[in-house]
Design a protein around this nucleic acid. Structure first.
Lengths: 210, 210
DNA sequence: CCGATACGCAACGGTGTCGTTTCGAAAGCT
DNA sequence: AGCTTTCGAAACGACACCGTTGCGTATCGG
């Protein structure tokens, strides 16, 4: 989607409407395999810098040529791979703000336990400085939808009066998501039961007196 | 401190009390330079995996031999380097829990803006899975002291009645630190003024109604 | 069937890092 | 002085990737 259609593109067919470029068409299966292999390697803890084209090709059961034919560099390949990540966010009930927040945070906790998501999170943290363009894309497809989901619920709470009208939505967002992020990274594994519920309830009620 | 004293150690001097091992002593300056170079490279965004001994030696103005003589592998070197990191935590006034929390979070925010700390944080996030032993050490010297500082203040608040007696200290901790972490990573740069204060106040008062 | 293109595979020369070894000089001790 | 150990520097053979090229085969349109 980024640097696709390098070789032909709009060229290739001789001004003949929407005809095929002639010759053997590119294998969709190979493309999928390459992207899958890339995501797999990342999910196994590979940083973007250590990702080798050779490893990707080998894992995908594909020649290096096939990769170089489609992507001119590693960053583009990774960018396209990240772009295929769907965000299967859990549906929220829409009844109680508290319940919806718990649903979202619990989903976040579950996702954090999966290799794929966890290592993608790592990439988002560590490679953000080195590959800003890549990260802009990643944030857009992976972080932003989730942030938006939480923000929407919080905003709805403000509108309906379930939450105070004067709160800072961004800070609330950070307190909720950040607490879960913190816990999944550095908190012990002991206190995972009902964690989402405890976070939400405590952020709702506050820790100050009364 | 980890794999030190590989070559001689208790051996070297012939059962003669605490005598020198004879021969030219190891240069303390070289050792410091090596560790500094290691931390510098990490601070420049180098992941643990990409760290090359050659680069460290070159940066430190030292022969590779000197490094291999002291550390048998990269992980030990990094571990020892991390161990030298002091935690210059800001002193807290000890008067108001709110003020102390703001002080700590503001310090966290400041630190997050510095290259050294930021990249160390990245390492803590991304290399945690691949180098668990290394990370255990890192968490101990870098993460835990800061966590303890916040936890102590929160606990003090509970004891003195400045905070509710029934709160979950760990969750409070995660909400405060996590909110700051979240914001420094993915929050916009716009809302940084008075961020610590806003987080603390909102976590104190809660976002629920009344 | 023919021409065109993509496929997987293997090989190319080039580069960077590995961990080790050798070297002459330096720095400590007796 | 003589002995011992470390120092920085340079070179070693080995390996992993790089990005490219050539090869024989597979798969499309005409």
């Amino acid at each position: 989607m980024t640097t696709q259609e390098m070789t032909h593109g709009t060229a290739g067919q001789a001004a003949a409407g929407a005809g095929r470029p002639a010759g053997r068409p590119r294998s969709e299966k190979a493309e999928k395999a390459i992207i899958e292999a890339t995501l797999d390697l990342i999910a196994e803890g590979m940083g973007v810098a250590e990702l080798s084209i050779e490893a990707i090709a080998s894992r995908a059961g594909v020649g290096k040529t096939t990769i170089y034919r489609r992507w001119s560099n590693k960053e583009d390949l990774v960018a396209d791979s990240l772009a295929t990540l769907k965000a299967p966010l859990p549906p929220v009930g829409g009844v109680s703000v508290r319940d919806d927040l718990i649903t979202l945070l619990a989903a976040m906790q579950t996702e954090a336990g999966q290799d794929r998501t966890r290592c993608l999170m790592n990439i988002a943290m560590s490679d953000a400085d080195r590959y800003p363009r890549l990260m802009g894309r990643f944030v857009k497809v992976a972080v932003e939808p989730r942030r938006k989901a939480v923000r929407d619920v919080v905003q709805r709470g403000v509108d309906t009066g379930e939450l105070r009208p004067d709160i800072d939505v961004e800070v609330a967002l950070a307190s909720l998501s950040g607490a879960m992020l913190w816990h999944t990274k550095w908190g012990g594994v002991e206190l995972t039961d009902g964690l989402a519920e405890r976070i939400v309830d405590q952020v709702l009620s506050g820790i100050g007196p009364r």
